[in-house]
């Protein structure tokens, strides 16, 4: 095969949401520095299948850092040691021959384990369903260039909208807070004229749903911003707090 790195992996195995899990130790050999972290897991799983053992279940799909499906907690950090990348875009050249790597699922009360490293993040979908939209039915729109938007605001909205919904922010937060995720959507729409009409209801409903899903409170440690693979900024949380206070003040 293509490489010569040998690694020890300690990987979380858990049969289903109710089972007790534990770390299991595996050895992988012949890993190439050009492989992605998930391709290294492919090698491990192929090996386990050949040995007649149960491969490790993990979530992934696009493998290019955009779908937000991959979610491994690597050596105590969501998406591993490199800043600004998802697990699927982490490459083995970031590790050394002989390393021991500990891999766990996202841990949060709101993200129950499905199996091994896969978790259920549907709480995020429910938060969006509570208000993360502009209420405009198909066919209601006017000509796109009738809405002029200052380029800086458009760029800021885009930067907030770049969130991939991976949940790393929640996984890294000691309180299991989803503030970075929720504030990214609130900010995107608060920055745009299209989002103004529903802005109060939006922030109140989304925050309410966030609390109901069992996400923790935010104590502004900033860990989420550091681990977010898409560079979603803490400014969004500040903006959401302003929106929230404003909305509460005008609540009738």
């Amino acid at each position: 095969m293509s490489g010569n790195m040998n690694l020890t992996l300690k990987v979380w195995k858990q049969k289903n949401k109710d089972a007790k899990g534990a770390l299991e130790t595996y050895q992988v050999k012949g890993i190439s520095p050009d492989m992605s972290f998930l391709e290294m897991f492919d090698v491990l799983n192929e090996q386990l299948i050949t040995e007649g053992k149960d491969p490790i279940a993990f979530d992934h799909d696009c493998r290019e850092g955009i779908c937000g499906m991959c979610s491994m907690y690597i050596n105590g950090r969501p998406h591993g040691p490199v800043k600004g990348v998802t697990t699927c875009q982490l490459h083995m050249r970031s590790f050394k021959d002989g390393d021991t790597i500990v891999v766990e699922p996202w841990r949060s009360a709101a993200f129950p384990v499905v199996k091994d490293l896969a978790v259920n993040r549907s709480a995020f979908d429910r938060v969006i369903a509570a208000g993360g939209f502009v209420s405009v039915n198909t066919g209601n729109a006017k000509d796109a260039n009738n809405i002029l938007i200052n380029k800086d605001d458009a760029d800021d909205a885009f930067n907030a909208a770049a969130c991939i919904g991976c949940g790393a922010c929640v996984a890294t937060c000691k309180n299991g807070s989803a503030m970075l995720f929720v504030s990214a959507k609130v900010s995107q729409l608060a920055l745009l004229p299209q989002g103004q009409i529903e802005k109060e209801a939006r922030v109140l409903n989304m925050v309410n749903q966030m609390d109901e899903e069992g996400f923790g409170a935010c104590s502004v440690t900033g860990a989420c911003e550091i681990e977010c693979p898409k560079g979603i900024s803490l400014e969004n949380i500040a903006r959401m707090n302003r929106e929230f206070i404003g909305a509460n003040a005008t609540k009738k």
Binding site: T138, N140, K142, A144, I147, I149, L192, Q194
Partner: peptide
Amino acid sequence: GAIIDQCVAQGVPFAREYGGVL
């Protein structure tokens, strides 16, 4: 054309020029 209108109405942040147009 209507697709672009619909997406903008939803708040899709397309790239813009300094004058504010798409």
